[in-house]
Amino acid sequence: MKTFFFFFLFCMLATSVKASNIVYAAEVLSSVDSLSNSPHIRTIAASCAACHGTNGNSAGITPTLAGLDDGYFITQMLAFKDGTRPATVMHRHAKGLNIDEINLLANYFARQKRVTNLPPKSEKLQAAHE
């Protein structure tokens, strides 16, 4: 994990030397936060959206993951993984992820703001549609 982080930092520094047209937005993030913000974790988290909504804000029925306590998230995912918490599909997803990913996903979702995501409003099918 550490090595990966330093590699990450190195890449960013390397970029800053190369490109002169870059400005830095002052944004302070802890190392875990910046890892869980990585493309790797944000895309896994986004993959959950089909059932748990954009950025973990469910549009209905399934639990909202945004703002969830990270410790709780990790315990539940590990319980799905080893089968101690019964599930219809969640054990399959938990088993496919490694511990680092579960930890970083916990951090990612804990940092998401709770917002209301609604399903879109349905409407009449227009005559002109295929």
Binding site: A50, C51, G53, S58, I61, N117, L118, P120
Partner: peptide
Amino acid sequence: SAKPSAQEGDYAQAWAMNIWSDVLT
């Protein structure tokens, strides 16, 4: 699944609502 269930039917509806919300809002 081990077998069909109404619970998974509810989750399937939830899947649709959430994926529509994700792509359409």
